[in-house]
Simulated assay, not measured.
Amino acid sequence: MSGTVNGSDVSAPVLAAYSYCEAVTGQQAGNFSYGIRLLPTPKRRAMSALYAFSRRIDDIGDGSLDPAAKQRRLEESRALLGRIREGKVAEDDTDPVAVALTHAARRFPIPLGGLDELIDGVQMDVRGETYETWEDLAGYCRCVAGAIGRLSLGVFGTVPGARDAARAAEYADTLGLALQLTNILRDVREDALGGRTYLPSDDLAKFGCAAGFGAARPPAGADFTGLVHFEVRRARALFAEGMRLLPMLDRRSGACVAAMSGIYRRLLDRIAADPEAVLRGRVSLPAHEKVYVAVRGLSGLDARDVARRTAGGRA
């Protein structure tokens, strides 16, 4: 029993491994899953393998193990990644994520070093690192999100003759930063209750929030709304720059990126409209709105809009 990926035979064990990764993605990926559903089968499978491995790394960081045990698990994952990079994972290996990712890395020019960066970023979380400046936080964001953008670009590829294609990885990285900063804003309450604040201490001090958000509340007299609006402007600027990637992608890859980015930009709009909502609970979009954004991406509306604004020098 076998399938076909662009004319290449795919064995039953590899198909089963991909199916496992797609199930993980469908159950856990949330906003991410709306985008990758729009991809053709080979790319969808590869993106699911990337997601499943990344999810495993994130789960180690977010789990209940003590820090030393988390570090050991992360280094074990790094060693597994080395085996995947070297093509040393057999098709009958008992780890379906490793099997699927090994196959995907043979099929597409995926820069697997990005997963090493993800592990580096999660290790920063395990150590409880904080960030003084935006430049410091951006370094973390590049590890945990910018790297995912660059990994994804390895699957998407760029269309032949795409203008400015040499900067595609840079734009993918920037888009990852925009997504991660949106996540950080959305999760202010959850992180505060867990004893973490990711926003740069310089920014917190500027708006009277240097004391953090104990009990998920800003300090007395703080300009929390000003802080959120400041970070929203930064995220929107990152989106504007990162979305220059869209015209470089084929239609369905562009639809995938447009869907994921569109969902997060709408999430950012909700946060901007009611900054203190992030202190009351997790801000999210209803499923029907996510579907609308995905359909809009598939229709090419977002890509055409970005191309038009870029040509006018306003992207």
Score class of each variant (00 low, 15 high):
Leu279Tyr: 03
Ala222Met: 02
Ile110Arg: 04
Leu175Ala: 13
Ala192Pro: 09
Leu249His: 02
Ala273Cys: 05
Gly82Val: 03
Ala192Gly: 09
Val159Pro: 03
Val89Trp: 04
Ala235His: 05
Val144Cys: 12
Cys143Thr: 08
Glu117Met: 09
Arg280Ser: 14
Ile184Glu: 06
Gly82Ala: 10
Asp164Gly: 09
Tyr51His: 05
Val14Ile: 13
Arg196Phe: 11
Gly157Phe: 07
Ile60Arg: 08
Thr225Asn: 13
Ala240Gly: 13
Val14Cys: 04
Glu170Phe: 07
Thr130Gln: 15
Gly121Arg: 03
Val291Trp: 15
Asp223Leu: 07
Ala272Gln: 08
Ala303Tyr: 02
Arg296Leu: 14
Leu137Tyr: 02
Thr133Gln: 09
Val89Thr: 12
Arg73Glu: 15
Gly212Phe: 07
Arg127Tyr: 08
Phe239Asp: 00
His229Lys: 13
Asp9Met: 09
Gly221Cys: 04
Gly313Trp: 04
Arg56Phe: 08
Ala23Thr: 15
Ala211Leu: 10
Gln123Trp: 03
Phe224His: 01
Leu267Tyr: 06
Leu38Gly: 03
Ala259Trp: 01
Glu190Gln: 09
Asp305Glu: 10
Thr4Tyr: 14
Glu91Asn: 08
Ser8Leu: 14
Arg45Val: 07
Tyr171Met: 11
Asp116Arg: 06
Gly297Thr: 08
Val306Trp: 01
Ala138Glu: 13
Arg150Val: 15
Ile119Asp: 07
Ala162Ile: 01
Gly114Glu: 03
Arg45Glu: 14
Gly208Ile: 14
Thr41Phe: 04
Ile184Lys: 08
Ile119Tyr: 10
Ile110Leu: 02
Gly313Ser: 09
Asp66Lys: 14
Pro96His: 06
Ala240Asn: 12
Pro13Thr: 01
Leu204Phe: 11
Ala240Trp: 01
Leu181Lys: 02
Ile271Lys: 04
Gly35Leu: 02
Ala68Tyr: 13
Arg55Glu: 10
Gly242Leu: 04
Ala90Leu: 12
Asp125Phe: 10
Gly154Ile: 00
Ser8Asn: 11
Gln180Arg: 05
Arg37Asp: 11
His229Ile: 14
Cys209Arg: 12
Ser152Pro: 12
Pro40Asn: 14
Lys70Ile: 01
Asp62Arg: 04
Lys88Glu: 15
Thr94Ser: 15
Asp92Met: 08
Gly63Arg: 12
Arg106Leu: 04
Ala165Glu: 11
Gly195Trp: 11
Leu118Lys: 07
Ser8Thr: 14
Gly82Met: 08
Met260Phe: 10
Ser19Val: 04
